[in-house]
Amino acid sequence: MTNFRPLQSNLTQVPVLYLKLDVPVRDLYEFAIQRLKAARDLSHSLTCMSIGNTCDRDLQHFAAAGYLLLQDGCDALDAMQGRFTDRQSSALQA
């Protein structure tokens, strides 16, 4: 098993950004929380904007940034879940 998993937010044919899967779970957690809170804050800013003062391009930029942050955070949570599942399976087999 490889120690790296490409982030799903990679939009290139060859992935550029990866999660290192064998880091401490706390680091995966902090990575996920940082991205999720940034997406939350971005969404909050979007709700405070006046629709009359924005253009379609602004909304596309917010949506793209929110997607990237949420997807990266979810990828980290999935990696954490995999680690927890692996530990549970190992404990049951022992």
Rank of each mutant, 00 (worst) to 15 (best):
M1Y: 11
M1P: 02
M1F: 00
M1Q: 01
T2M: 05
T2Q: 08
N3R: 06
N3E: 07
F4E: 08
P6G: 00
Q8H: 00
S9V: 09
N10E: 04
L11M: 05
L11S: 14
Q13H: 12
Q13R: 07
V14R: 12
V14N: 06
V16C: 07
V16H: 11
L19A: 07
L19Q: 08
K20G: 00
L21T: 15
P24R: 05
V25E: 03
V25A: 12
V25I: 10
V25W: 08
R26N: 05
D27I: 13
D27N: 07
L28C: 09
L28N: 06
L28T: 09
L28M: 08
L28P: 14
Y29T: 12
E30K: 14
F31Q: 10
F31A: 05
A32T: 15
I33K: 15
I33A: 11
Q34G: 12
Q34T: 15
R35I: 01
R35C: 15
L36C: 06
K37Q: 12
K37T: 11
K37Y: 15
A38W: 10
A38D: 10
A39G: 01
A39D: 06
A39C: 01
L42T: 11
L42K: 03
H44M: 00
H44N: 00
S45R: 09
M49C: 11
M49H: 13
M49Y: 14
I51K: 08
G52D: 12
N53G: 04
N53D: 13
T54Q: 03
D56G: 01
D56Y: 05
R57L: 10
R57H: 06
R57V: 12
D58K: 10
D58Y: 09
L59C: 02
Q60P: 03
Q60H: 07
F62E: 00
A65L: 02
Y67L: 08
L69T: 00
L69D: 01
L69I: 01
L70Q: 00
Q71L: 06
Q71A: 01
Q71G: 00
Q71H: 09
D72P: 12
D72N: 12
C74Y: 11
D75M: 00
D75N: 07
A76K: 03
A76R: 02
L77G: 01
M80Y: 11
Q81E: 03
Q81S: 01
G82K: 03
G82N: 07
G82C: 06
R83L: 09
R83K: 14
R83N: 01
F84I: 04
F84S: 02
T85W: 14
R87D: 04
R87M: 08
Q88D: 14
Q88A: 15
Q88C: 09
Q88F: 14
S89G: 08
S90A: 10
A91D: 13
L92S: 12
L92R: 13
Q93D: 08
Q93N: 08
A94K: 15
